[in-house]
Simulated scan of single mutants.
Amino acid sequence: MVPRALVSRLARRAVAAVRPQVWAVGDTRFPKDGTASPGVARQYSGTLLTLDMLDELAAVGLRPAVLVADTGYGANADFRHGLEDRGLAYALQVKGEMTARTESAVPHQPPFGGLGPRPLPRYRARPVSLREHVLAAGRNSAVAVTWRKGSKAALSARFVFLRVRLAGRRPKPAPDLPKHADYPRTRAKLKRTVKLDILTEDDVGRR
């Protein structure tokens, strides 16, 4: 096992040399190579491990300017709230069927009748899918964004930028779980391992 102090020094040196603009979280779905590492066995990990990794890096003074991840992380309310609780800026991919309310929506407080528990605040309007929010904004709300030059032409698309309030309750705290679990090759088919990429400005341009 690599000493934590050594990992911290290596991480600080890497960040100082690379000067990352974005940290990207992704999954690898294959066993690690080699015969002398606990990573040889297939691992199952996910959002909890990612948050733990971020905490370890924060403990040595390393925090991302922006963290990005795909819908496997963006659809997880625990992960989103974990990033918010840590004060981290992020851009996460989500699915169009995820529901939300407009930014201006505020919960209504029903009157208390004097008996029983006080009613909790609730929204009057039902949430709708993110896809419906985008369609309601209309084509004129779309903004053209170009992110890099391709082999034949610039790569660009039109995006709609909206502020919304995601629907759903704040998740309850998860129980303490092991940071990762190793499974024998002969038993488990779970192959997800978190990968944390640190991207330079040039990397962002290429992607």
Results as ranks from 00 to 15, higher is better:
residue 76 N to G: 05
residue 118 R to A: 13
residue 111 P to A: 15
residue 73 Y to T: 03
residue 86 R to T: 08
residue 45 S to Q: 06
residue 76 N to K: 09
residue 38 P to K: 12
residue 61 G to K: 03
residue 52 D to V: 09
residue 39 G to C: 12
residue 82 G to Q: 06
residue 89 A to K: 07
residue 112 F to A: 12
residue 47 T to A: 10
residue 94 V to T: 04
residue 97 E to M: 05
residue 119 P to M: 12
residue 53 M to V: 14
residue 66 V to F: 12
residue 38 P to N: 12
residue 94 V to N: 01
residue 119 P to K: 12
residue 65 A to P: 05
residue 79 F to W: 05
residue 89 A to M: 04
residue 52 D to I: 04
residue 104 S to Y: 00
residue 54 L to E: 13
residue 123 Y to R: 04
residue 116 G to V: 11
residue 51 L to N: 07
residue 106 V to A: 01
residue 72 G to W: 09
residue 55 D to H: 15
residue 25 V to Y: 03
residue 118 R to M: 09
residue 65 A to K: 10
residue 107 P to S: 03
residue 112 F to T: 08
residue 32 K to W: 07
residue 71 T to I: 05
residue 33 D to W: 07
residue 25 V to G: 05
residue 122 R to L: 13
residue 57 L to W: 15
residue 105 A to S: 02
residue 105 A to K: 00
residue 97 E to D: 11
residue 78 D to R: 03
residue 73 Y to F: 12
residue 46 G to M: 01
residue 58 A to S: 15
residue 26 G to K: 06
residue 48 L to V: 03
residue 77 A to S: 09
residue 98 M to Q: 13
residue 28 T to V: 12
residue 107 P to H: 02
residue 94 V to C: 03
residue 52 D to G: 11
residue 68 V to C: 02
residue 77 A to V: 09
residue 57 L to G: 13
residue 94 V to K: 01
residue 57 L to T: 13
residue 24 A to N: 03
residue 112 F to E: 09
residue 27 D to L: 11
residue 118 R to D: 07
residue 65 A to Q: 10
residue 87 G to C: 03
residue 62 L to Q: 02
residue 44 Y to T: 03
residue 64 P to H: 03
residue 66 V to W: 12
residue 25 V to Q: 08
residue 78 D to T: 04
residue 44 Y to C: 03
residue 109 Q to T: 10
residue 91 A to P: 05
residue 114 G to D: 09
residue 55 D to Y: 14
residue 46 G to W: 00
residue 78 D to G: 02
residue 39 G to L: 14
residue 76 N to Y: 06
residue 63 R to P: 08
residue 117 P to L: 15
residue 105 A to N: 00
residue 85 D to P: 04
residue 115 L to E: 15
residue 91 A to V: 12
residue 112 F to G: 09
residue 62 L to K: 01
residue 86 R to H: 07
residue 25 V to F: 07
residue 73 Y to W: 08
residue 32 K to T: 09
residue 74 G to L: 07
residue 68 V to M: 01
residue 107 P to F: 02
residue 56 E to I: 15
residue 46 G to K: 00
residue 46 G to I: 00
residue 81 H to R: 06
